[in-house]
Design a binder for these strands. Structure first.
Length: 421
DNA sequence: TCTGGGGTCCTAGGACCC
DNA sequence: TCTGGGGTCCTAGGACCC
């Protein structure tokens, strides 16, 4: 059996941990730039708020109902996620992190010595005690069914946080009650096609013949069909090294000058490179993209991307930023109001430092050490204490708007929580 | 005024090879 | 009248996920 442990409304729950008095009060967490709602508590959902709603469009509902609003702080959430994960690893030997708020737990063998449901309930209690984060667990034969079970665990209080699908009757009942569009792996396109073919519940899909599924769909949907019938085939364990690293942001205000666009891209390049080095990797390909504001129909629209291959895999901020600046020269257009830019590193290989016989960069080894020193300084004294001048300073127009930001309580000694007695 | 960010996998089709 | 067969690699785009 496999379990999916899922933190309930994770980002909102983390904010609740650090803000006394939010229990029972609706809480919303916003995306970058305070743009859209990305997470919210059940109380907020009950007000009719939906994931993805633009903040400015629902401001009235939020103010009227005294909803607590926070700018998303991924650094804080990632630190809390690590704590939750470590408690899960204390409970179950083989675990697999699937996302910031979800973990698969392999329970094979545990059924000999434990009641699986009680084992998971104990883990949930421990997590609540040590972190105050609420967690739901679904247990089943496959990952797709475990996901279904976890949704039931979340939905019905009677399960005590843990729902197990361990018989065929339970499987069929669960699949007959579950929304087809909410099945893991069924996106809007596949859902529409299934509906056209007369399939409206997960059970109807599961009961179709293998031949029927293969005739109408490609592999992803076929795999979902197998999983719904209890045959595990989705492997999420292979993602060891990232294949791409992206940093991109929408700007707080639109910009039109090349220097400002370069400043944003240089800052994103530096961020990509430090991620690269933290993974002990190097990239062979740099891409830069920039675009206008797609919601402003009154302005000329523009989108472009340019890519440069590097002769040697590199994790050197100086080199990659220099390439990125040349790419900005290629895609910049005067007169365009830019709303967003980004840097994508791809063709990622293991190891920070690579060497070729006829290198055009002198003292490459020292350059790598320089970058690593920058990482150390920034780690010790705070993000972007040291960086390239071309990336500009903190207060420029393109910087993201974050008006409701919670401090980095768990990762920055200067921002640690203060308690007044 | 204000509309997110970061990923993976699969497939078809083109280019190229012998 | 007749116009090969069997591959690989790369890329763009689609679909999906949190």
């Amino acid at each position: 059996m496999i379990a999916l442990a899922d933190c309930n409304t994770f980002f909102a729950s983390v904010e609740r941990v650090f803000h006394a008095g939010l229990k029972g009060r609706p809480v919303c967490v916003l995306s970058s730039n305070d743009g859209n709602i990305v997470a919210m508590t059940a109380e907020a959902k009950a007000l009719g708020l939906k994931r993805g709603d633009p903040f400015f469009k629902v401001k009235e509902i939020i103010e009227k109902n005294n909803v607590a609003v926070f700018s998303g702080n991924l650094v804080l959430y990632a630190a809390m996620s690590k704590r939750v994960q470590s408690i899960m690893r204390r409970t179950v030997e083989r675990t697999e992190c699937y996302s910031i708020d979800e973990q698969f737990l392999y329970l094979d063998g545990y059924e000999k010595h434990y009641d699986l449901v009680e084992l998971m309930r104990g883990m949930i209690k421990q997590i609540a005690l040590w972190t105050d984060i609420p967690v739901s667990v679904g247990i089943a034969k496959t990952k797709t069914l475990a996901k279904v079970a976890s949704k039931f665990a979340k939905q019905y209080k009677g399960y005590g946080g843990v729902c197990m699908i361990d018989t065929d009757d339970k499987r069929r009942k669960a699949l007959s009650l579950f929304e087809l569009a909410d099945i893991w792996g069924i996106g809007p396109r596949t859902f529409a096609k299934l509906t056209r073919l007369g399939v409206t519940t997960p059970l109807q899909l599961a009961d179709k013949s293998e031949e029927w599924v293969k005739r109408h769909f490609h592999r992803p949907c076929y795999q979902t069909w197998l999983e719904l019938n209890g045959f595990p085939c989705i492997d999420t364990s292979e993602i060891l090294r990232r294949q791409t690293i992206t940093t991109s942001r929408s700007f707080g205000k639109m910009i039109s000058s090349k220097d400002e666009l370069k400043a944003s891209v240089a800052s994103f390049a530096a961020s990509c490179c430090s991620t690269l080095r933290a993974d002990d990797s190097a990239a062979m390909s740099v891409s830069v993209f920039a675009c206008s504001n797609r919601f402003r129909e009154d302005l000329p629209q523009y989108w472009n991307i340019a890519t440069q291959r590097l002769p040697v895999p590199s994790a050197d901020t100086l080199e990659i930023t220099a390439e990125a600046m040349k790419l900005v020269d290629k895609i910049y257009r005067p007169g365009i109001m830019f709303k967003k830019s980004g840097v994508i590193l791809s063709d990622i290989v293991p190891g920070c430092f690579h060497h070729i016989l006829f290198d055009y960069v002198e003292k490459r080894e020292e350059r790598v050490m320089l970058s690593q020193t920058i990482d150390k300084i920034n780690h010790k004294y705070g993000l972007r204490s040291v960086g390239l001048a071309v990336a500009g300073d903190q207060n420029e127009q393109w910087k993201t708007k974050k008006e409701h930001l919670t401090p980095n309580y768990l990762t920055d000694i200067d921002q640690i929580l203060t308690v007044q007695i």
